[in-house]
Design a protein around this nucleic acid. Structure first.
Lengths: 184, 184
DNA sequence: TCTGAATGCCAACAACTGTTGGCATGAGAG
DNA sequence: CTCTCATGCCAACAGTTGTTGGCATTCAGA
């Protein structure tokens, strides 16, 4: 398939959509505001993405790119994962968009649960002592990492915004480590 | 001031508002739906609370009722606080309403930061070794507790919903303890 | 019993939402 | 050049939102 002339427009819409969803959440991010950011007519958004729900689905496509844990020393997995999450979060609006939207939109919450089950869970299962514990352990890891992201990027609690990523990872790393590998 | 006949109506509106804000978030919780839940005309909501923003402010009034930490043994503060948070969250829609709304509404996020600064911070300052660390330590505590609430009550991650409160507190307690009192 | 205020409902408003259809414009193939 | 189709914009739609003013009813105090 040759490159179409509209591909640039499609991409611009996606970028604007991610920014709006990230800063405003699902309902307050309007098709009109997204289109305005992309310097485009609102009807183009509809033509290229069908409707708002599908636009969000396209904008919220995300790969955590979790590292191969078998290549990491067992004792360091917690801090490696903490650092990885923070970096992934800071470099891309998509996760913040997903988190903000998931608080009020059912489809976004679904997507979040999918991401949890399809990407985080397998990694946890590969690391933790008893695979039967994996869902609970993964849930705990998610609660700490999502809570950190919530305070830092969504609620913007001043001390968590000011804290350098390296320091945050240093605090949270041992927590993740314990949730992953602590006996019981 | 004598009890007015409208006090029951005012209270019913507040209850319905909390439920709606908790389950739908700020923008999807409409005045009309709240009024319908309270079996009342939407215009009454306006008369008694002025506008939607003030209604939310009234519905999101909340006291964490944090215990007096000086009466608790230093080593147990983490698990006591974890249990307290979970119980407080489960018995009242207000915190879920506040959390859901804070993800997309600026006033709600403000309220959340207030609650953090006015109620959690002093307790942390009274416990942690160096008072200068209090904001950061309190921020970390918030990130874990809010993350837990997010996964359990908002995103409804299956393993976190299924986990008994006592088990969740047992996992999270040591984390809180470390954020509060660990050196460095 | 009469009066005035409190309480409640109805109807409507302007603004905004997602969404749609039709019409212009441009480029590229023949 | 001509024809065609993808790309883009404009105008409008139906529905929902927060919000308002007016009218009925009910209660409390004289």
């Amino acid at each position: 398939m040759a490159e179409r002339r509209s591909d640039a427009t499609r991409a611009a819409i996606l970028v604007a959509a991610r920014e709006r969803f990230a800063s405003d959440g699902y309902e307050r991010a309007t098709i009109r505001s997204i289109a305005a950011d992309a310097d485009i007519d609102p009807s183009m958004v509809m033509r290229y993405y069908g409707n708002k729900e599908k636009l969000f689905a396209a904008a919220a496509e995300f790969d955590l790119q979790l590292p191969d844990v078998s290549a990491i020393r067992a004792q360091e997995i917690g801090s490696v994962l903490a650092r990885h999450f923070l970096r992934r979060w800071e470099g891309d609006d998509t996760l913040t968009a997903l988190l903000r939207a998931a608080a009020t939109n059912a489809a976004a919450a679904d997507r979040m649960r999918d991401l949890f089950g399809a990407q985080l869970l397998p990694v946890v299962a590969a690391v933790c002592p008893d695979p039967a514990d994996a869902p609970r352990r993964a849930g705990l890891v998610a609660s700490q990492m999502l809570g950190l992201a919530l305070c830092r990027f969504v609620l913007r609690l001043p001390p968590m915004v000011a804290m350098p990523a390296e320091e945050a990872a240093a605090w949270v790393g041992p927590t993740i480590q314990r949730y992953l590998t602590s006996p019981a």
